[in-house]
Amino acid sequence: MARVKSGFRKRFNIRYWRWWVAKASIGKVAWLRRRFSFYPAVLTPTEAAGEVLEDRREDLPTLFTPLETAFVTERCWPYDTLARDWAGGASVPVHRLAATIQAAELLGHVSRIALPARHGIVMHDVTFANWNFAKARRLRELPAIASRSHLLARTDNYYHLLFHDLVPLVDYLDRLHPKGMPLTLVLPPSRLASLALGCKLLAQAYPGIDLVDLPADAKRFSQEALWLSFDAGNAEWTVGDAAPVHRLAELFRAHYGVEAGGGRRLFFSRGASKIRRLRNEEALWRLAQAHGFERFEATGSNHAEQVRAFSQADIVIGVHGAGLGNLLFCRPGTRLIEIFPENFTKSTYLWLSKRIGLDYRWLIGSEGDYDQAFTLDEALFEATLNEVLAASPAGQG
């Protein structure tokens, strides 16, 4: 698998040893822990919860066909993040948890909720808080938050921003949050302007929401910090309901003045991206162009066009990557052909397609190199494209 560090590289690096030195020194003294905001213990959300708002376990249908089930279990499971607890059945056990954590600290340098009184970082599915999640740093203290707060994750990944931050928040606001109760959304640093925009749109749509920043060199005390999680035994699988996805899409469309419609066929290019480059993209693009596809690339400055293009697409072809998070804006029935290198297949968008009603297919190319650069057989691509187009609903072919 491309870009995987060996166990030796994971352990014998400066951050690893800094963490152990900090744990052995700062972590042993309460005064130093507070002064350097270093809390090496791990607390599960359930252990940290002051009030549980929802704790629901259920078996959720995967909606996979037998062929899709085999694709996930045989190909994707080794590459899906934290994949476990599912052996290919027609349903998967899921756990929805919404809780509040009292007297918490929100830490900007790791974008985590901490409980200083218990010397711990609140984390899910992790027993070891390494340097990425618990590190020593002097943080300036910003004004405390008296109302309920929610710390957004610190991510520059567009898919995670949408489906692990904003969609669960919409789900919470629509189902669990008392109407009119103040809620402060705490925004960490991010290169993605769509994070701040999404939070601004929620503040406009739901009464009582306020926005504050949390820089990387600061912390805020929160009287009541909100925890939201959806666990389906696979970190690639996000919230299981279509309603919050469609609700968030509506907010972005309204902001940009975009109408959902049909008629567009997108060949979604990764452009000059170093990771997962399709070596024979030009040849594949020429085949798609002959069938009326337009080549489209997402950039940091064309988010409105991303929303418009995916809202109006009948078919989307693209290599696996965070940019396909724009599937959030697709209408039910939109067809997706996702392309992978042979040695890096994930079930992220298959799961999403089943949740929001997209017609999903996949194509697998050659083995990727260290940067996952690969090729896709052109005859296979054209045959699949012809098959999908032949099966187009009336008016879309």
Rank of each mutant, 00 (worst) to 15 (best):
A225K: 12
P40K: 14
T238C: 14
L251G: 04
R154H: 13
W17C: 04
P178C: 13
L183N: 06
L82S: 10
W77Q: 11
T348K: 07
K200D: 02
G88V: 02
K135P: 00
E224S: 15
R140H: 12
L328Q: 08
E378P: 05
R137K: 14
V29G: 04
R75S: 07
L385K: 05
A136I: 10
I145V: 13
A298S: 13
T127L: 13
G318H: 03
E281N: 11
L82M: 12
L43G: 09
L380A: 15
T44A: 14
A379W: 01
W285R: 15
L195Y: 01
Q289G: 07
D314R: 15
D165T: 14
D231E: 14
D55E: 14
G357E: 07
L195D: 00
V94K: 10
E294Q: 15
A304M: 02
E305L: 11
Q289R: 15
D171W: 13
F252P: 01
E224N: 14
T375Y: 09
G325H: 07
L376W: 00
R286A: 12
G318S: 05
G198H: 00
L185P: 02
G120R: 13
L385W: 03
V110A: 10
L63G: 02
V122I: 11
L197C: 07
F381E: 03
E250L: 09
L327V: 00
A272L: 09
I315Q: 12
L32I: 08
D165N: 15
A146Y: 00
T184S: 05
H255T: 03
D369E: 14
K274Q: 11
T69N: 09
R3M: 12
F221H: 10
R75Y: 00
E224P: 04
R112C: 08
F381I: 08
L185S: 01
L266A: 10
D125C: 13
G257D: 05
F12R: 09
L151P: 08
K28R: 15
V245P: 02
G88T: 04
W362E: 05
E224M: 08
D55N: 15
D156V: 11
L192M: 10
R335N: 06
R308G: 00
N234G: 06
L192W: 05
V94E: 06
L287Q: 15
W351C: 03
R279S: 10
S353P: 03
I113N: 04
I14Q: 09
F230W: 13
G368K: 10
H124V: 05
W17M: 03
R253V: 01
Y256P: 01
H95F: 07
A203W: 01
P178W: 12
A134G: 04
S301E: 12
H95M: 09
K10S: 09
L82E: 05
G89M: 06
A383N: 13
A70R: 15
W17P: 01
N157C: 11
G333T: 10
V167K: 08
A391E: 08
R286L: 10
E282Y: 08
W362R: 06
W20C: 03
L278R: 11
R175M: 11
R56T: 11
R137A: 14
I339T: 08
S301R: 14
L139D: 04
R3V: 06
N302Y: 04
W362P: 01
E281Q: 15
S190E: 03
T100P: 07
V212A: 00
V92P: 03
R57N: 07
R361S: 08
E387S: 15
A232M: 11
V126C: 07
P78R: 15
